[in-house]
Amino acid sequence: MSDMTEIDTTDIRLVPESAVGQEVAQTKSRRWPGLSVLGGLVLVLALLPLGISGSYYMHVLILTFFYVVIASSWRVVSISGQFNIAIGAFMGIGAYAAAIPSVWLHWSPWVTIPLGAVAATIVGALLAYPFARLRTIYYAMGTLFLGYVVINLITAGGKTTGMSTGLGGVEPLFSDRTYYYYLAFGLMLVSLACMYRLEFSRIGVRMKAIAQSHQVAASVGIGERRNRILAVAFGSFFAGLMGAVYCHYQGVASPNSYGLGATLWIIMYVLVGGINSFWGPAVGVGMLLVIPEFFFRDLKGNLPYVTAAILLIIAFTMPEGIVGLLKAITDRVSRRFRRGEVSGDAP
């Protein structure tokens, strides 16, 4: 964030075609180990409900899938250099846009969920338009405040939005939790695939260029405002979608789940996992949500101490997050291997 303000033209990867080609060629050679780990993980998660169906762990895993998507969608916004502290509000817009027709008009969940996602996208894009003028810390402060205002407006809606206690009685999608598990799991896979496609496409490269230097990006014809709004709209689509499904799952849309605290924790997931890598948010959610809930559940009220300790350890020892550390280790190991094969190749 702080180095966003500096213009360091020496370090800018702004030759889209060749640079991206090189990156792909580099990753292709060590793609198989990663892919097989990923495939194995997907297989295990797909078969897991056979073992733990109906238990508390299943609930935690469903939450995990939701938060992986939401944290990843925040990261998509952040690759365009926008430190958006309003993602919880976009989630809330999606949730309320789904909950209000469901409760008051008795619309089917299959209509209200897409409605929530679309509403979040449209509102997100409209709100992103004026905010595209702000950069760095001004953007962070402005969006933090925006999130607060949006939540305030939602709670000010009177009986329609259920005030600060939230809107209960949202129609459930299924009666069995296993179906929710597969729905959340499927949505997570599809969403992650979409985000992966976006990040490593031309648009993603443009967004990264804007993050590095908006002036240099503008000088080679990358429209800053357009790409930044696109990033926010894309991110808020998935946040809104997950917010909508989540409120149907919980049966209630409450403003506390979308306020400043919730948003900051979503950001913490990303920072712990590693903001510079695609799998960072997923790893971060695993670290801050799954590990405390699975292994430290007995602590109950003391649980926040565990998460705070994890945050401190990561902040002190891994500046690039967990994935950043793993990447550094694998880089070092593979460089050593390559040095053994081709002498004098090491930089």
Partner: peptide, 26 residues
């Protein structure tokens, strides 16, 4: 120790505030 890195100082601040709020809450 965070060397003014925005992301890391944010993590530290949130950890600090979590500890304080939880302590008084409990």
């Amino acid at each position: 120790p965070m060397k003014a890195d925005f992301n890391r100082t944010m993590m530290v601040c949130i950890a600090l505030s979590t500890v304080l709020v939880t302590t008084f809450n409990r």
